[in-house]
């Protein structure tokens, strides 16, 4: 019963993809139509969930868990990371410049515009990547993408964007469309020993338990990043989330910020356009 609409959704997606494969010249990808179909699918599957609430992941789907989350949010576990991130963000590099010099609007309230397609480079640039590039351009060593420092910095930047809707742009550039399409393909491709795609869990089965955990909906999943996960006893970035997902399905994770992951983030952020940034978040 539950799987049925998911299947029909997948069929719709395949229908979009298939002609492109069969006859490359036939149809231009239509991200706007994708995003609408994606969002409509979740609205229809969870009519009781308010649209903005999808950014709250499993807490939008389970009452008992929501209560535990609301209690946590009274004094959230990401509080320390957030403060550390603010401090780090404001502290000048050795050369006297700061992160603010690398970003539009001094880096404040801009998280919702990442990732973006860089037309000079011809590739997707995520916030995590931009932060490390900023460090390197100023003579500082880059941070690990999966450790505390990067999570703290992105936590602060997300915090300054809270409430601002995701505003991911796909310019009319064949390379941008290709990046988007590659991200979409990665999302729906099965892999790992469990032979799961991202969509197997986060489109077909959100709200259901997989062993002990309640699966989050793909819609809005990146809006809450980075997250403090009780399971990790600490913070995690989008990079950490992607690599963990791949490990959990017993696949081999890619390098954080590899092109595939950047394209995936591009696709997944784009289809959540319109939903507010809620990060940093707290998750089980």
């Amino acid at each position: 019963m539950r799987i049925h609409p998911a299947l029909s959704f997948l069929a719709a997606v395949l229908a979009l993809v298939a002609p492109a494969v069969a006859a490359p010249a036939a149809e231009k990808p239509d991200p706007a139509a994708d995003a609408k179909a994606f969002q409509d699918f979740f609205r229809k599957k969870f009519p009781q969930v308010k649209f903005e609430d999808f950014v709250n992941g499993p807490y939008s789907m389970n009452e008992d868990m929501r209560k535990q989350w609301e209690e946590k949010e009274q004094f959230p576990p990401y509080e320390f990371a957030l403060e550390a991130g603010k401090e780090m963000f404001e502290k000048p590099f050795k050369n006297g410049k700061t992160y603010a010099d690398c970003f539009a609007n001094g880096g404040i309230g801009i998280r919702q515009t990442y990732p973006y397609f860089d037309d000079k480079e011809g590739k997707v640039v995520t916030l995590e990547l931009a932060l490390n590039r900023c460090r390197e351009a100023n003579g500082e060593a880059p941070y690990s993408y999966v450790k505390d420092e990067m999570a703290a910095l992105t936590a602060y930047m997300a915090y300054t964007s809270r409430g601002k809707p995701f505003d991911i742009k796909i310019p009319d550039d064949p390379r941008a469309l290709e990046a988007y399409e590659r991200g979409k393909e990665y999302f729906y491709t099965r892999r790992g020993q469990l032979n799961f795609s991202c969509a197997s869990c986060h489109v077909q089965n959100p709200g259901e338990r997989i062993r002990a955990e309640i699966l989050a909906p793909a819609l809005g999943i990146l809006n809450a990043m980075p997250i403090y996960r009780s399971e990790w006893s600490g913070m995690g970035t989008i990079s950490r989330r992607f690599t963990t997902c791949n490990s959990q399905i017993r696949g081999v994770p890619l390098e954080p910020q590899s092109e595939e992951y950047r394209d995936l983030e591009y696709y997944l952020s784009y289809v959540s356009n319109g939903l507010p940034i809620s990060g940093p978040g707290a998750r089980p």
């Binding site: 209560k67 535990q68 989350w69 209690e71 009780s230 399971e231 089980p284």
Partner: peptide
Amino acid sequence: APEIAENGGVVPIA
């Protein structure tokens, strides 16, 4: 206390 703890490491109890 919750019926099912979301994670045994952090169980809110009041």
